[in-house]
Design a protein around this nucleic acid. Structure first.
Length: 480
RNA sequence: GGUCUCAUCGUCUAACGGUUAGGACACCAGGUUUUCAUCCUGGCAAUCGGAGUUCGAUUCUCCGUGAGAUCACCA
């Protein structure tokens, strides 16, 4: 019987980008996996203790992002749970209580210095080429903490050695530990303090977070000791790096809102697949995973230690793979917002027929419009497309005219099933003595005027005899 | 500067100390008797450097080098 409780604890400072989402995904996968054999719980906790940086609407946006990806939480701000509230700004009393325990134990004290004095200490250390440590300036007789000063942790500096579920054995010297602030002078706790309190209260078993926290981990370990709480399994995830440069992906470096990808026609399961395999693999050569497979196969010990770059090409490829894996009906429900405007009046039946034709060619749902518009609206002849085609450019206007005329005649006698059309077309090859590359390309353009389209016989069959012949005529007429 | 982490094709990655260093994306070339962004086949392409341990290091150790993180009343 395993019990896994994980949490995703974002601060509401804006939209979510792929790095943050991946952390959430991994934590969620772990909890889902545990559900199969025991207890698994995934918690969404909002860390809103910095009122200055808070951005209105962020919580809703975070929730929408997770929902889009298919991540559901068992406990959270919107639905509550046994450890409610799940918003840190509503848990201030709890942190005060825990802070008092530390004060009583002589492990916390009021910081009597002004900003200026603090700054002077920093300058001093810098001038002396020494690291700045607040604990070098611990006041001998700190005032009684009345809430107007910051409350600091009285650390117990010592070397630490610990095991990280991803990084393995880690260690630091005592310089990594300092008297950090537990509660700010505005009454709100710092992340360093309250996340540890909450994780303990909520019984979090696995803490997943990104690499930037690795150097503050010794502080956390020191606090766990002072609080006398068991520490959870710590797992440090490597960065997701920006596509170019070598910087970690961040909002200021052009990281996109994850919901942007939804608008661009990416499937959530493709995004999940991509994110999961960015820094993780199952040890086989499998590249495409369903959500269910990810849940079953994910493991922290196969997570990469080194940062990975965000490769949109691979995401695009995966998206195509997942689109092709969808049933037609499923795909149909996903593309609702992606049809060309001209398809508005088309019936579900005809739209599905068209969709079936292009499913294999779509890489994003947004491709649908360019791929299908000519099924729903009359294309405008663009002879530029003929003259810029290597093979077709060799034909004279008279030859083009003759070929299309011939095609029109043959097709008007066809039964117009896909099979019958193929037979007609093959016959046409013999009559005209043309190569398929020329004849078929020409017909394709004359009825669609699109850069690419499905197999010619399927395209014509879907358009129907009447439309096909009419479009051939329109094209003929437009040819001077 | 202190502390800490990381290092295999362009990118994502695989490889009990023994493999012609494997796969995928991208790219290139063919094929699937039309286009093509699907599909199939093939090709290109990597162990950061130097010592050491070993019969044998991508793998273990050390030293470099490079990259990154962190040193906030931000999370």
């Amino acid at each position: 019987m395993t019990s896994v409780r994980t949490r995703f604890a974002p601060s509401p400072t804006g939209f979510m980008h792929v790095g943050g989402v991946r952390t959430a995904l991994f934590a969620w996968l772990l909890a889902q996996q545990a559900k199969a054999t025991g207890e698994g719980t995934f918690i969404l906790r909002i860390e809103d203790t910095d009122k200055v940086r808070e951005v209105a609407g962020s919580i809703e946006q975070i929730e929408n992002s997770l929902k889009w990806l298919g991540i559901r939480w068992d406990e959270g701000v919107d639905q509550g749970g046994p450890d409610a509230p799940y918003k840190q700004s509503e848990r201030l009393d709890i942190y005060k209580e825990w802070a008092q325990k530390l004060i009583d134990a002589g492990r916390a004290y009021a910081d009597p210095y002004t900003q200026e004095e603090l700054e002077a200490f920093r300058e001093q250390a810098k001038a002396a080429k020494r690291p700045f440590l607040f604990r070098d300036h611990r006041p001998e007789n700190p005032p009684v903490w009345d809430g107007s000063q910051p409350l600091r942790f009285k650390s117990d500096p010592k070397p630490y050695q610990w095991t990280d579920a991803v990084m393995g054995e880690l260690s630091t010297g005592e310089d990594a530990i300092d008297d950090f602030i537990l509660i700010k002078s505005d009454g709100y706790p710092t992340y360093n303090f309250c996340h540890i309190v909450d994780d303990a209260i909520m019984g979090i078993t696995h803490v997943l977070r990104s690499q930037e926290f690795i150097s503050s981990t010794p502080k956390f370990l020191n606090l766990y000791d002072a609080l006398e709480v068991d520490r959870p399994t710590l797992a440090t995830l490597p960065f997701v790096m920006a596509i170019d440069g070598k910087k970690k992906l961040g909002k200021r470096d052009g990281a996109k809102d994850i919901l942007e990808y939804a608008k661009e026609g990416y499937l959530p399961e493709a995004m999940a697949n991509f994110l999961a395999t960015l820094g993780w693999n199952d040890g086989t050569e499998q590249e495409v995973f369903t959500m269910q497979e990810l849940i079953e196969k994910f493991s922290l010990d196969r997570v990469q230690k080194s940062p990975a770059r965000f490769d949109e090409q691979r995401l695009l490829w995966l998206n195509g793979q997942h689109i092709r894996a969808l049933s037609l009906d499923d795909l149909y429900t996903r593309v609702t917002d992606f049809w060309p405007a001209s398809a508005a009046g088309a019936s579900e039946e005809s739209k599905k027929q068209v969709l079936a034709l292009v499913q294999d060619r779509m890489k994003t749902l947004a491709d649908l419009s360019i791929l299908t518009s000519y099924f729903f609206e009359e294309p405008t002849p663009n002879w530029e497309m003929v003259s810029s085609n290597k093979q077709l450019a060799k034909l004279t206007n008279d030859e083009v005219h003759a070929l299309l005329e011939e095609a029109k005649n043959s097709l008007s006698a066809s039964d117009f099933t896909a099979e019958a059309i193929q037979a007609t077309l093959n016959n046409l090859l013999e009559i005209t003595g043309q190569k398929p590359g020329i004849l078929f390309s020409l017909i394709r353009l004359a009825v669609s005027w699109a850069p690419f389209s499905p197999a010619l016989n399927d395209t014509l069959a879907t358009l129907g005899k009447e439309v096909t012949l009419q479009r051939l005529q329109v094209s003929l007429d437009s040819l001077k």
